[in-house]
Simulated scan of single mutants.
Amino acid sequence: MRLLVGLTASLAIAAPLGAQQSTPGERLPVVKYILPNGMTFLFLRREGAPTVAFVTHFRAGGVDEWTGISGTAHLFEHMLFKGTRTIGTKNYPAELAIFPRIDAVADSLTAEFRKGDEADTSALARLRGRLRQLEDSARQFDVSNVLDRILTENGAQSLNASTSNDVTNYFFALPANRAKLWFILDSDRIRNPVLREFYSERDVVMEERRLRVETSPGGLLREEFL
């Protein structure tokens, strides 16, 4: 199933930290502006290089999950890089028509997998193969990594994201004369996200968990006590 949760976001805009360092206890001249929809902007002007750094901060993370959907916050962090109805697609209507078929096979695969030791291994293999086929069919309409490419071609630096217990952040820096691009791209991917490659990306997130938590003593310690 595809699930999209409405989130309240705040944005901090600043020049790179190296441009000007504040002294301990200094009160920074942050300007706060709240839109009618509740979206909050925090602006901090710093003299220096003609760049603008963006941090989009969602008040949602692992603490908002419950048993059965754990990992969803991290997964949706990845999903917002997959494009929109107009960005990242060659033919959105054709792509959209395949999604319900992908979901149906994925649901059947999940139901069989949850049988544990009683699961039919041949059915699991067949369903996994069918899921790959359908995702490949949808992928023919996909333009991979288009958001990253658009931003990089316009001089973006430090493009990344992170998820923690109670926040999800997206951040990058742009030349000041390309600042409008953030408003165009982020408004579109927040309002019109398309969850492309959902199940293959879910596997990527699960592998990240295995590397960072399940096989890491420090990761297990942080998850258990923090």
Rank of each mutant, 00 (worst) to 15 (best):
F225Y: 07
V31F: 02
E153I: 00
W66P: 00
F81K: 06
D188P: 02
L159A: 08
G6P: 13
L96V: 04
R130C: 03
L11P: 00
L17S: 09
A123T: 06
Y33E: 14
R212I: 01
E201R: 04
Q133G: 08
W66T: 08
V146D: 05
P217W: 06
G88Y: 10
E197G: 05
R210M: 08
D188E: 15
I87L: 13
R178Q: 15
I98T: 10
L174K: 03
D107A: 15
A14Q: 09
A173C: 05
L42F: 15
Q21L: 11
R126D: 09
G218A: 07
F54A: 10
E112D: 07
E224K: 13
E224T: 12
S137Q: 14
T163I: 05
E214A: 10
R202D: 13
I102P: 11
P100Y: 12
I150T: 04
V146K: 03
L28E: 08
L28Q: 15
H78C: 10
R101A: 12
E65P: 01
N91V: 01
V205C: 09
S108A: 15
P24D: 07
S10C: 03
H78F: 04
L109W: 04
R59N: 15
E77I: 12
F198G: 01
R132N: 15
V52P: 00
K115L: 09
R149D: 15
T84R: 10
L109A: 11
G218F: 07
D186T: 03
E223D: 14
F113P: 00
L80P: 00
E77V: 08
L134D: 02
W182T: 00
W66I: 01
P93H: 09
A73W: 00
T8I: 09
F225S: 02
N169L: 14
R126W: 01
S164N: 14
T84P: 07
S144K: 13
S158C: 02
A138V: 01
F43V: 12
A125S: 13
N165Y: 08
V194S: 02
D188I: 02
T40Y: 01
T89Q: 03
G116E: 10
